[in-house]
Design a binder for these strands. Structure first.
Lengths: 218, 218
DNA sequence: GAGGCTAATGTCAGCCACTGACAGTTGACA
DNA sequence: TGTCAACTGTCAGTGGCTGACATTAGCCTC
């Protein structure tokens, strides 16, 4: 056991490498099929067959179709959380959140590219947005991430989440804006990282004006 | 056709009344079973059997288990949209949203009570929050409602949603805060309308302080 | 480098959500 | 009362997903 893990840290054994390969192959095959013929129209058997494994094996790697479809996005979520943790302590909450997103994207892109082609990753957002079951699962995961972020923000400010509503509200506001951005980006024409960054910045800039009493003068 | 609908407006025929009864019975039975033995643990056959109809009939009334579980909540969403539309034009966007929620609740409660017992409705929120598949579906529906609200807010202010980001951002912020409130309320101990109203007001009041640069002085 | 251990995989049987097709039943309306 | 249309039940089938069991294939030791 210990030997196996120690070895894995340097160079994973054949077994581990094989597992990784199967996992990534299933992931790529799934996304490829989903984005081309549609999520609902793709059966698990098809995915398994494309990788030449049994259906049962697919379910040993992924809890279900949904998880396969959203796995890479989970990856980016993890990267965002890490990026937020790395923000300097002097930044205000919303400032830290904003910087974590805008500056963390390139690293995300690189991490993604090591598993699936970037354009496949980008196209998957369109698929998610236009597939009700998938969008639902995605929103739930985003909600979970929000809870994680609440804790981080609270810790940054030395607050108790259960006593002070501000960490939760701040994260909810941020998550809301990010959701709008995501939706517009995924449904819009330009599925590029630059477009996403610009849209994000624009919507975050619109935050305070949106809360103003009088919109006419703004 | 036309005659049937005209009659239905005054006093629905036997056929219509029967349909309504079956629908409500299925809804109540579903919620009762869901909240007592759990959503996943309840099969559609059980629900159908409880109302003494075939499984096929259940699916003619509801697109699936999810829809049965979330039907009453959809009702409250509709009421909220109506309440927002009824707000005076001079109110600022966030002011109108806030008032629509806080003042619309009683009417919602009454509307709900005509179909299912109120405590069953309240308990269903706890069930949703603790059932991943259901929470996912719920969040997606809330997201759809948000889009509807965006349009209303934009219209109130005479803006084009596609040209000005403020309506979307304002609604996203509001929806985010409502989501936090809902989660805390559903997972907390006090499942009453009063508790919900207080929590909502408290979190909406925390909005501006949460966006402040310095939290320590606040 | 042969054999035992264990993780990974395949096969099979089965549950449940959901759907289309067809037939039987029952309000509605002339 | 008889015809039409809507509502319902039955049946068969698909697809997602799971548990159980047998088989294969890395891994590790002697």
């Amino acid at each position: 056991m210990e030997t196996a893990e120690a070895t894995a840290a340097e160079r994973p054994g054949l077994r581990e490498r094989k597992k990784q390969r199967t996992h990534d192959a299933l992931l790529r095959a799934a996304l490829e099929l989903f984005t081309t013929q549609g999520y609902e129209a793709t059966t698990v058997d098809e995915i398994a067959e494309a990788v030449d494994v049994s259906q049962r094996t697919f379910f040993r790697y992924f809890a279900g179709k949904e998880e396969a479809a959203l796995a890479i996005i989970d990856l980016t979520h993890e990267h965002f959380v890490a990026a937020l943790r790395a923000r300097p302590a002097h930044e205000a909450p919303l400032e830290a959140l904003r910087n974590a997103v805008l500056e963390g994207w390139d690293a995300m892109g690189e991490a993604v590219a090591q598993i699936v082609p970037v354009d496949l990753y980008l196209r998957s957002y369109g698929m998610i947005e236009s597939t009700p079951a998938l969008l639902a699962a995605h929103l739930r995961r985003a909600d979970e991430v929000a809870r994680e972020i609440e804790a981080i923000v609270a810790e940054r400010e030395g607050l108790d989440v259960r006593a002070d509503p501000r960490p939760r509200v701040a994260v909810a506001v941020f998550a809301g804006v990010m959701r709008v951005t995501e939706r517009l980006w995924a449904m819009g024409g330009d599925l590029s990282m630059e477009a996403m960054r610009e849209l994000t910045a624009a919507h975050l800039d619109a935050l305070r004006p949106s809360l103003a009493e009088k919109w006419r003068s703004g």
